[in-house]
Nucleic acid binder design. Structure first.
Length: 545
RNA sequence: GCGCCUGUAGCGCAAUGGAUAGCGCACUGGCCUCCGGAGCCAGGUGUACAGGUUCGACUCCUGUCAGGCGCACCA
């Protein structure tokens, strides 16, 4: 089973269409999906429905013909014995029923160390750079950043697992307006601490941490620039610690200051100019992003000769490609959505495919405490921080809560609920399954590798559990293709459910040695998959609870 | 005014254009002589509204209504 059965079957369907000579009129992609219900087999294709119009025949007629044509191809070595039945059902779906023997072999693969199923290479080593959080180092991380951190980290984990060569990056806005304001905020607080009476502007940073920094350097008589630098370094150390406690790590911290000092911004702009994508108007320099379907052209150099934020960003992303990355994934807050088309325009101006840059908008999380919304304002320092969430509900529950909704949707995060150690809290349902399996494995003798005969596993709940395990890779592939890890949380709940159902009806440790062995292997496999899944989510796996 | 996200059961949410729209909570009843009852089983109502595209729409498009967020030559 070197190849994924899904890919093999798609290839077989293609061949059968060629045999029927309808591949000429149908060159769209062939999908093989998980059916809505177990009654419709294990894999399903809708080609007969999609061919109805072109061929002017009933879907069932087409389906029957395809089924006949595909049968010889199922006898080829890699597929032989995998398919138990093919049927045309419903409005004309072609449904594949996989043989139990195939599932038993699949189960074996999960348990055997180092096999394909738990080390897939779907990504083929393609180099991916996931950029996320990238919060200005002007204060502690907020919950918005926390959600980005959880999503970005998990997405990167999944891509790595699937065989992409994945790196994680934090883009550091370590200079510019906000940093200046930060420095001035600290400078003002120093004067205040030294007994001066001051007016503190409303748009300055008002958080407590500004006092802390001021306190530390109030006697040092630093230049404004050094105050900013000190403040940035101090805040960055806090951010790094917060992320570390949240289980989030980065391979690179890419400095905007470093980028500017390297001269790469001018270089990138010059290149754009040579390509004819820049022009002057009203004293400013504009990027002709409308050529690439942006709503309007964008300023890159302001009339006072300073850069807009877009200029370093253009250079930065071109630099990502030059560093060898083939797929760029950026996680942004919803306030940046208007920015997508101009950055996509920029990468296209440098001759990169529009699809090689994926922008994932991570919607905000509203924090609730006992059903009441908690108001947030960054400037006033009145916002819930990642630190507070971590202190209050812990890493496991907070990561899970940030991941359990579609990333593009708003998320209501009730701190009270996340804290509860009750069945209302879905994370415990999964961890409980894990702990339960661990407990059984502690009592049962260790499964003997290669010796157990897995064909003893024929009960409905056993087969369903194996099928659920088999769907693991399929789910991860979807996560990768939609760049959203939330489906993994849904899947793990379903897997835990399938396990609990099995457990309730069938005894693992019983009289029959062969059956006991088989079932020990089964739950061992469930443990491996839950374990892998929780690792990807960055959530701990309790042997006991 | 413009843009983005959302509208599914009493509540919180799922369904990568597919088949009889699922899960948790809450409510009612049942299941521990037995591997962890933080579990399992049974009980039921729903796609905001109006059009359109499609063989097929919770999903895509247009409009209306409702909620959240954002709209700089800021970052």
């Amino acid at each position: 089973m070197k190849e994924d059965i899904q890919d093999l079957l798609v290839a077989a369907i293609k061949k059968s269409l060629e045999d029927l000579k309808i591949d000429k009129v149908f060159n769209e992609e062939i999908y093989l999906d998980l059916p809505a219900d177990a009654r419709f087999g294990d894999l399903s294709t809708n080609i007969a429905l999609r061919l109805k119009k072109t061929l002017n025949k009933s879907p069932h007629e087409i389906a029957d013909a395809v089924i006949e044509a595909i049968k010889p191809h199922l006898e080829e070595p890699q597929l032989k014995g995998c398919i138990k039945d093919i049927k045309a059902q419903g409005q004309g779906f072609i449904n594949f029923y996989l043989d139990e023997k195939y599932f038993h072999r699949y189960l074996e693969e999960i348990i055997m160390p180092g096999t394909e199923s738990m080390r897939p290479n779907i990504g083929l080593g393609k180099r991916v750079l996931v950029e996320y959080v990238s919060a200005n180092p002007t204060g502690p991380l907020s919950v918005a950043h926390a959600r980005q951190a959880a999503v970005g980290d998990t997405l990167a984990n999944i891509l790595s697992f699937l065989g992409f060569d994945t790196k994680r990056e934090y883009y550091l806005n370590d200079e510019g307006n906000q940093i200046n304001i930060l420095g001035e905020s600290v400078a003002l607080r120093i004067r205040e601490l030294n007994g001066e009476k001051i007016e503190f502007p409303e748009n300055y940073y008002q958080g407590e941490y500004i006092y802390t920094i001021a306190q530390q350097i109030k006697d040092k008589k630093l230049e404004p620039e050094d105050i900013s630098k000190y403040a940035v370094d101090y805040i960055l150390s806090i951010i790094k610690k917060e992320l570390d406690d949240f289980g989030v790590k980065f391979d690179y911290w890419y400095s905007q200051k470093g980028l500017r000092e390297s001269g790469k911004i001018e270089e990138a702009l010059n290149l754009l100019k040579e390509k004819g994508f820049l022009y002057e108007k009203e004293g400013a320099l504009w990027f002709k992003s409308t050529i690439f379907k942006d709503d309007k052209d964008r300023v890159v150099v302001k009339s006072d000769k300073s850069f807009t934020y877009l200029a370093p960003d253009i250079a930065y992303h071109e630099e990502k490609y030059r560093r060898g990355f083939k797929w760029l994934i950026n996680l942004w807050g919803p306030d940046h959505h208007g920015y997508i088309s101009r950055l996509k325009a920029a990468v296209q101006a440098f001759n990169h495919e529009s699809d090689s840059l994926s922008i994932v908008i991570v919607q905000l999380a509203s924090i609730f405490r006992e059903g009441k919304s908690v108001e947030m304002s960054t400037r006033k320092g009145q916002y819930i921080t990642l630190r507070e969430v971590l202190d209050e509900v812990g890493k496991d529950a907070s990561r899970f809560f940030f991941l359990m909704r579609r990333t593009s949707s708003h998320l209501d995060f009730d701190l009270g609920l996340a804290k509860k150690q009750t069945p209302e809290n879905p994370i415990f349902y999964i961890q409980y399954a894990y702990a339960r399996i661990s407990s059984i494995l502690r009592q049962g003798s260790k499964p003997v590798r290669k010796q157990s005969d897995l064909s003893v596993l024929n009960e409905k709940e056993e087969i369903e559990l194996i099928k659920k395990l088999w769907q693991f890779l399929y789910i991860l592939k979807i996560c990768s293709s939609i760049q959203d890890p939330y489906m993994l949380t849904v899947y793990l709940q379903q897997l835990a459910e399938a396990f609990h159902k099995f457990y309730d009806l069938h005894r693992v440790l019983g009289e029959d040695d062969a059956l006991t062995h088989g079932r020990l292997e089964l739950i061992e496999a469930v443990k491996i998959v839950i374990s892998t899944g929780l690792d990807l989510l960055g959530i701990s796996k309790p042997e006991k609870m």
